[in-house]
Amino acid sequence: MRTKIQVQNVRKGFDNGKVHLQVIEGLDFEVREGEFVAIVGPSGCGKTTLMNIMAGFLAPDSGTITIDGQPRMNPNPKGVLITQQGSVFPWLTVKQNLMFGLPDELPNREALADEYAALVGLKGFENNYPHELSGGMLKRAEIARALVVKPEILYMDEPFSALDALMSLRMQNELLRILAIEKHTVMLITHDVEEAIHLADRVLVLSPRPARIQASFDVTIPHPRRVSSPEAQALRVAILKELGVAETV
């Protein structure tokens, strides 16, 4: 598989009054086309900053990010960011939200919106407003709104953290089901190691701030994965160890 995203020596710091806070220190990694990479790291290690840089909302102080060999520019629909708080517009219906990113002159935009609403299991809720939906349904709407514009990359920053454990697991399975239909390159940031193992092809562990890549784990367990399987548990222990949490199987 060819390289989709290349991150080279990316550094980012913030000046908070007189104090300089170095958040990211020389990050290097690659993501292959169609690969699902999860990034885990301790809280406050700069994961969200990294994601904002990757999606184009922040510029790195130095270093480069290239996508398909081209330097990363401003945010664009080729890579859609999905965050924990979500950003489904509450003043638009589900369908209007789904059509938001589609150009007005696209003739089949309504049909596309309906198709993706159905894909994420929101058939029958197209004309509902977001405040009439549950947390899980809102997440589905957000994923559908991202997918309908046919992005090449999905940037997911703790997408399911605000959901309860059961709904989070359900949404993970949903995501895998959808990704099996639509092959996307995915970057997922999570603090949930099991979620990372459940979903990703590769798990990168970030060090505490300033963030560097501390370890990388390939997840070769075939789908559908059971997080309770011995292999998955061994991987979980190994990743947790990198994060400084000692645990026995």
Partner: peptide, 27 residues
Amino acid sequence: KRFLRAAENFGVPRKKLFLQVVFPATL
């Protein structure tokens, strides 16, 4: 900000940004 960012992410024209985000968000 999350709504403005989402709008920016989808790269919509100014008119649409105004009619579908700024105005209804302010309504």
